[in-house]
């Protein structure tokens, strides 16, 4: 654990909490107060007595004043499954995005586990990989961290197919956090829509590195796609070419952000040039994802 996140950082994470905006059917014993009647100590509302209700929940003081029977209803505490999708395609090597993404996933997993939620980790590249199925309990953080440390990059990015694979196997709903550079020529729309359709709350954390955001001029080069076997394109890295690239990347990002708004899912752009603490405690807290 120490190689991923240090203790000071974990202590600071204790003060944060994931925000769930969408109803989901979780299991009891979580820390989230579900809008359904439950067995917690927190009072929710009154309702009229019906035959068969437990007499222990009848409010006898109210009966004395109103001469009518009312039952006290308490809130229900249940957990929320949190699914972490970590992009392990070859493009995550550029600028060491994979290492940054792994640390980010570890921090989010820790946040979820400390609130007694279930956490699952699914790496993906061209297809969804095995990963760690949903688990709860603070002790699971060690196993999840160990698993995250062992992730290595390989293959091409296929967000649509990976998320479609996931949706076919999981229907419970929950928080689906996608950590990826989102740079896929075949797109991402179908995958995100699939998550939304299956009542997941998608959160897109797009990780980009300085070589992606602001590549340097380099004269005559051969642009090599790290994911494609042998795909290359000759280019001269001058101001004109770099300007055109930056414009295309900006348009791509705007398109992604607009699509996320359309699906009512959260979108954040993170740069690996910024420290992880800054990304979590400032960038992600600006939205409604963390509080």
């Amino acid at each position: 654990m120490s190689t991923l996140l240090d203790e000071e950082f974990l202590r600071r994470l204790e003060r944060l909490q994931l925000v769930f905006r969408q109803r989901s059917r979780g299991r009891p014993l979580g820390s989230r107060l579900a809008p359904r009647a439950g067995m917690s100590l927190e009072f929710a509302e009154y309702r009229q007595y019906h035959p068969g209700d437990d007499f222990r929940y009848v409010d006898w003081n109210l009966y004395g004043r109103l001469d009518r029977l009312f039952i006290k209803v308490f809130t229900r505490e249940e957990d929320v499954p949190v699914y972490l999708f970590v992009d392990v395609s070859r493009s995550m090597e550029i600028g060491d995005k994979l290492a940054y993404g792994v640390k980010l996933a570890a921090a989010l997993a820790y946040l979820a586990l400390k609130d007694l939620n279930r956490v699952a980790v699914f790496p993906f590249a061209s297809r969804l990989q095995g990963g760690v199925p949903p688990r709860s309990g603070a002790r699971q953080v060690f196993e999840i961290f160990r698993y995250l440390r062992g992730l290595e990059s390989a293959g091409e990015t296929s967000i649509n197919e990976s998320l479609a694979d996931f949706c076919q196997q999981h229907h419970e709903g929950g928080l689906a956090i996608l950590i990826s550079d989102m740079l896929s020529e075949e797109g991402y729309q179908e995958g995100l829509a699939c998550l939304r359709w299956h009542r997941f709350q998608p959160v897109v954390l797009q990780l980009l590195a300085p070589p992606d955001l602001a590549p340097l001029a380099g004269g005559e080069v051969r642009l090599v796609d790290v994911e494609g076997s042998g795909r290359a394109k000759p280019a001269y890295l001058g101001a004109q070419t770099l300007g055109a690239y930056r414009a295309r990347l900006s348009a791509y990002r705007r398109e992604l952000e607009a699509f996320c708004q359309q699906l009512s899912c959260d979108y954040f752009l993170l740069s690996t040039a910024n420290p992880l603490e800054q990304s979590i405690f400032e960038t992600l807290r600006r939205g409604v994802f963390l509080k």
Binding site: S91, L223, V224, K233, Y236, T241
Partner: peptide, 25 residues
């Protein structure tokens, strides 16, 4: 030969017709 320059997304890079402006470059 031209040096290899690995990129994350080749599809975002336009076809370049640019050439160096100065002789020194």
């Amino acid at each position: 030969r031209a040096r290899a320059y690995p990129v994350s997304a080749l599809f975002l890079w336009p076809g370049s017709q640019e050439r160096p402006h100065s002789f020194l470059r």
